[in-house]
Simulated assay, not measured.
Amino acid sequence: MAIHIKSPWEIERMTETGRLHTQLFAELEPYIRPGVTTLELDTLIHKAMTRLGGQSPQIGYRGGGSVPYRYATCMSLDDVVVHGFPSGRPLREGEILKVDFAFTYGGFTTDMARTYPIGKVSPEAEKLMRVTEEAFWLGLEYLQPGNRIGDVGHAVQEFVERKHGLWCVREMVGHGVGRGMHEDPQLPNYGDPGKGPKLRPGMTLAFEPMVSLFPAKMVILNDGWTATVGKGNLAAHYENTVLITESGPRLLTGSQRTVPV
């Protein structure tokens, strides 16, 4: 495992990438509503990336030997956890949409994801989205220099599963990010305290709780990408890129919490 500790100059560049990445989400959000297609949303984001002078590292990316990914974003509905393809089907009232994409600017990449209700959603979906975001903010408090990655995953798992009766997806994890879209170390949303690599100032991590309503083994569909926890289940996703500093974690994407822990 080769964990890259970012220099002050690299951190400065990643801070700018993260600022623009957050701006992209802000531009997208007013368009997320029933009747809009996820392909339209993907096109909007891709054009905005180009306008800002950045690129999508996802287009042409090969994951695990699969066919290259073709879109600037992942648009995942309901039971799909991640890597859903944008499509021409209009969004429907009551669905939940996960928007997840990386953004590269000036040679540095950040990663960010959010889950959105499409119109009015079920109480179960509302709880799932709320707990997933709360899990992010809770776990963020454990991203302290000197802690270990297992401390973070354990805190998230206890909060999601023991306190709220939901399920941390096991098959997808957070990761380092910066010079590349995926760097060491991996950052699971479960684990044992005191285990795993030690957190150090200068690490930049894509921290991303992924939570489902019911325990399930995630499977990849025949397209080689779409990751689902099964029909009748629901999944939510909340992700930011985080810098570990001497005084604690600092967000490089997103803003402060919108829900209390």
Rank of each mutant, 00 (worst) to 15 (best):
G174S: 12
Q186W: 13
V99D: 05
E239M: 15
E239C: 15
G18D: 03
A235F: 02
V169C: 08
N147P: 00
G107Q: 07
G224E: 08
L199G: 03
P215L: 09
V99R: 04
G65H: 10
P185Q: 09
V156G: 05
N147F: 10
R92K: 15
M129H: 07
T73R: 02
I220C: 10
F25E: 08
L52K: 13
L52R: 14
D78S: 05
T204E: 11
L205R: 08
F25H: 14
L140W: 02
G232E: 12
Y71T: 02
F207H: 08
R257H: 14
T258N: 12
P201E: 11
L138R: 15
N233V: 00
T228M: 12
I149F: 01
T258M: 03
C74S: 15
F159N: 02
L44I: 12
S212L: 09
E141F: 04
L140Q: 09
V211K: 00
E126H: 06
S87K: 12
G35E: 04
E208H: 13
L243A: 08
Q55I: 11
G94C: 07
T132W: 06
T50C: 02
L140E: 09
G94E: 01
H46L: 14
A216F: 06
E95C: 06
L24W: 01
T241S: 15
R51I: 09
G106Y: 11
P260K: 14
T110A: 05
H175A: 00
G65E: 09
E158V: 13
T37E: 10
L28S: 04
V229H: 11
L77Y: 05
V99K: 01
K195H: 13
T22R: 00
H46I: 02
H46F: 13
W225M: 07
L143S: 04
L41C: 01
D151E: 08
R92M: 10
G18W: 01
E40M: 13
L41K: 05
N147G: 07
A235P: 04
L205S: 01
D42T: 11
K163E: 14
G18S: 11
R148K: 15
N233C: 08
L97T: 10
T37W: 10
R162N: 14
Y105D: 01
R13A: 14
R70D: 10
L138W: 07
P188H: 09
P117E: 11
L213A: 07
Q55M: 12
F159Y: 15
A48G: 03
T245V: 03
Q144T: 14
E126W: 10
L128W: 06
Y190A: 08
V82Y: 07
T43P: 06
A236Q: 03
K163N: 11
G107R: 04
L52T: 03
L138P: 04
R257N: 12
V131S: 09
L199H: 02
L20H: 04
G65C: 10
A235N: 01
A155N: 11
T115D: 03
G53N: 06
